[in-house]
C-alpha cells in the first residue's frame, strides 16, 4: 500500500449532528420559536462551555459531545467530516449560578440576584435568571430575604451541602437500577467490563455519584462535599497509574483484535512477542493499564508483575 497522508487540521463545521430532548424540538409551538447556543462559564473548569437555552430561556441544557477519534457521518447524500454526536441534556441551572453566588457570598451580604449574576466574560449568564428552576429553587443553596417586592439572597454552604447530598442520593438510586459499572475503578477501559458486581459497596456508589456531581461544581466544593458525605480518603484512581508518555509500545502482545477474553487470563503475558499491527499495539497499550488496575484490585497489594 502507499504511504499514508497526514491528517489535515479540521475545517470549521457548518453542520452538527445532535440528540436533543423532544421538548426542545416541540418548543417551536410556543411563543419563542428559537433556541440559542450560548457560551457560559463551566462551574467545574471555570472555562467556557456551550449550553442551549430554549422555550424563551425558560429551559437550559448542556452540550456534551460523543467524540471518538476517526469518525465521520453520512447524512443523506452528504458527508460530514466531524463525526461527533452532540448530546443536548438538561442541566440544573443552580449549578451554573453557584459560582456567582459563592463569589458574592464571600462578602456575607444579602444581594439581589441581578447584581450577583453578572459576568463580563460570559454575558449570556443573564439568561439563567429566566430559567424556571433557577430563581424558584435558590432556597436550596442560599438564604433568602424579602423586602417589599424585592428578593435578596446570600449563599449558604450548609444548605448547598444538603442540596448536593440529596442529588448524590438520587444518583445512587438511579445507578443501582442501571447497569452502569461503578465498582472501584476496575473497568478502566471499555474493553473489560465485568457484568456481575457482587463486590460493589454502598461507598462505591457514593463515590461514583460524588464524582459525577463534581463535574458540575468547583474543585473546592467537591472536596467539601466529599467531607460532608464522610467518604474515605480520596485515593484518586486516575493518578495511581499515570499513563506515561514514555511507555514503550507494549512488549506484551495480544493475539487477535477480537478475543478480549484473553485479556483476563493470567498467562497471556507469557505469550512470545509477535509482530503486531498498529491497531493491536494500541489494544495492547490500552490493555496494559487496565490489567494493572485489575491485578492491583484482586491481589492484596503485593507484587503484580510476576504473574
Amino acid at each position: 500500500m502507499t504511504t499514508k497522508k497526514k491528517r489535515s487540521p479540521p475545517t470549521e463545521s457548518d453542520s452538527w449532528v445532535l440528540i436533543a430532548p423532544d421538548s426542545v424540538v416541540a418548543s417551536r409551538k410556543t411563543r419563542d420559536p428559537d433556541a440559542t447556543f450560548v457560551s457560559l462559564r463551566n462551574p467545574a473548569t471555570d472555562g467556557g462551555s456551550q449550553y442551549l437555552f430554549s422555550n424563551g430561556d425558560m429551559q437550559v441544557f448542556e452540550v456534551k459531545a460523543f467524540s471518538e477519534d476517526y469518525r465521520s457521518w453520512f447524512i443523506g447524500q452528504r458527508v460530514q467530516r466531524d463525526g461527533r454526536l452532540l448530546y443536548v441534556t438538561p442541566v440544573d441551572p443552580l449549578f451554573l449560578l453557584l459560582p456567582y453566588l459563592r463569589k458574592a457570598g464571600a462578602e456575607g451580604k444579602f444581594q439581589p440576584l441581578q447584581q450577583v449574576v453578572m459576568d463580563e466574560d460570559y454575558p449570556g449568564c443573564m439568561r439563567l435568571l429566566s430559567c424556571t428552576h433557577s430563581v424558584d429553587s435558590l432556597h436550596h443553596v442560599a438564604d433568602e430575604k424579602e423586602v417589599g417586592s424585592m428578593k435578596f439572597h446570600r449563599y449558604s454552604q450548609e444548605k448547598t451541602m444538603e442540596w448536593l447530598q440529596k442529588k448524590v442520593e438520587r444518583i445512587v438510586r438511579m445507578l443501582k437500577k442501571s447497569d452502569i459499572s461503578v465498582g472501584g475503578g476496575v473497568k478502566s477501559s471499555t474493553f473489560i467490563r465485568v457484568k456481575e458486581e457482587n463486590h460493589v459497596t454502598e461507598v462505591d456508589y457514593l463515590c461514583y455519584a460524588h464524582g459525577l456531581i463534581s463535574e458540575y461544581i468547583s474543585e473546592d466544593l467537591s472536596k467539601d462535599l466529599h467531607k460532608h458525605l464522610q467518604l474515605p480518603e480520596m485515593s484518586s484512581p486516575n493518578k495511581a497509574e499515570p499513563p506515561s508518555k514514555k511507555r514503550k509500545l507494549s512488549d506484551k502482545p495480544v493475539e487477535a483484535g477480537e478475543d478480549y477474553t484473553k485479556f483476563n487470563s493470567a498467562d497471556f503475558a507469557r505469550k512470545p512477542p509477535k509482530k503486531m499491527t498498529a491497531a493491536q499495539k494500541t489494544l495492547a497499550k490500552v490493555d496494559k493499564t487496565g490489567m494493572k488496575t485489575m491485578s492491583a484490585f484482586f491481589s492484596p497489594k503485593v507484587k503484580q508483575e510476576n504473574n
Partner: peptide, 8 residues
C-alpha cells in the same frame, strides 16, 4: 443526566 440535573 436527568438524575443529576432534575430539580430537588
Amino acid at each position: 443526566a436527568e438524575a443529576i440535573h432534575g430539580p430537588i
